[in-house]
Design a protein around this nucleic acid. Structure first.
Lengths: 127, 127, 127, 127
DNA sequence: GTGGTCTAGACCACA
DNA sequence: GTGGTCTAGACCACG
């Protein structure tokens, strides 16, 4: 799995890292129970500080995406509860995106097609 | 149009303000050519610093959502060109949302239904 | 409110700090909406690093005990939802304490008396 | 007696083990003078490192819960003196729990009922 | 060798 | 001036 960070971006490094790992899980690039690289290893590979990676891992752990096994380091968590109720935050973010898309002139059909395309990349295996 | 800010939120105040104005434009609460309140006026109404409102307006101007005329104040821009190519940033944000939704167990059908519901609230009038 | 940290303790400094603030809220030493000292201020007062205080605040924020207002710093959150269902973690911790007490020879009556005494110190004002 | 360890937990494995043995003693699952499994035996059963079990036993010995006889292995200690003075550590832990419960909205009555329920599971036989 | 904790010092976004 | 972020380097608990 390839991770690319933009040092000049507005979004913090740890958040970029978190986002890319989430996408990696959803797309199947990282499968459940897969071992993630160690904090130091990933920090070296990316050329950033270990605490930055540590913070990203802590976020992901707190959000339930990964779990820390003291014996073998971090690994991808098993799937969430299959509760198909979208969280209000997700809905709020989606509303903003749809508003922006609407103003840009992207209609519902075009947007849904884009969603379909993005969904087709997701290979996350529900248990 | 009602604007409500959450002082305890993670997202900066100016960004909350920007987001709500964008949603206001898309939903039709603010129509093109409509004059926005003065920086000072809005700051007083919301009980926040004028610089914060200023920054939100500057963002919106830089993104093309509003135009600032020194004589008449800020007003909503005319609609964009009807170019149905989604911006890469929008696609990136949408990808992250879809990834999170997928892991949460929200399938494509459920997601599309949510999009439809949100689109139905948008009444932005294409010129 | 007095905060005393034990540098030689097993428990991390940020956790000691977190615990004492929680107790402070419950005992009424800190009332809801009260402004907490700034990260740097408290760090100086306690003679520890600002990031340690920062981490304690981040924990408390994440657990809902305090809220960060970008304009005025950290303040004690309003009360939680009045849901009288004890969390499983709390029950687990309590079970261990009661087990230890039992082995030490502290009976149910003695224990309940101790609880009463501790509860009487709590002046947390439900809204 | 059943021991279940959570590898992903925050609490160290040796501490989980220690806690469960303490609870086992208090509930009567382990009776005084009962012989505990060998370090190596228990480590194999649980699928963990022998040093981890060793550390748990060392803790329990140091706290007086078990006695280690080089000839006969580890066995549960005889009951403590019936001194109903709670240790300051226990009181401190209990204070934190009660503070959290108070903020969660759990009142004294509800808490006392929970204690009663937990006490009823304890069958530790005072000598 | 792993993650967790702590320190010291720096810069920046926010208000 | 506030909290948030990042860095570099150190020590320790855990397994």
């Amino acid at each position: 799995m390839i991770i690319s960070l933009q040092l000049e971006s507005e979004t913090p490094l740890y958040e970029q890292l978190r986002n890319q790992i989430i996408i990696g899980i959803a797309t199947g690039a990282l499968v459940p129970e897969e071992k993630l690289p160690t904090v130091r290893q990933l920090a070296d590979d990316l050329g950033i500080n270990a605490m930055t990676v540590n913070k990203a891992y802590a976020c992901l752990k707190q959000e339930g995406y990964i779990a820390i096994d003291r014996r073998h380091g971090a690994k991808v968590s098993a799937a969430r509860t299959c509760d198909p109720e979208p969280s209000p935050q997700l809905e709020e973010q989606l509303q903003l995106i749809i508003a922006q898309a609407t103003i840009q002139g992207i209609g519902k059909a075009r947007f849904q097609a884009l969603c379909s395309q993005l969904f087709s990349r997701m290979a996350y295996q529900q248990p």
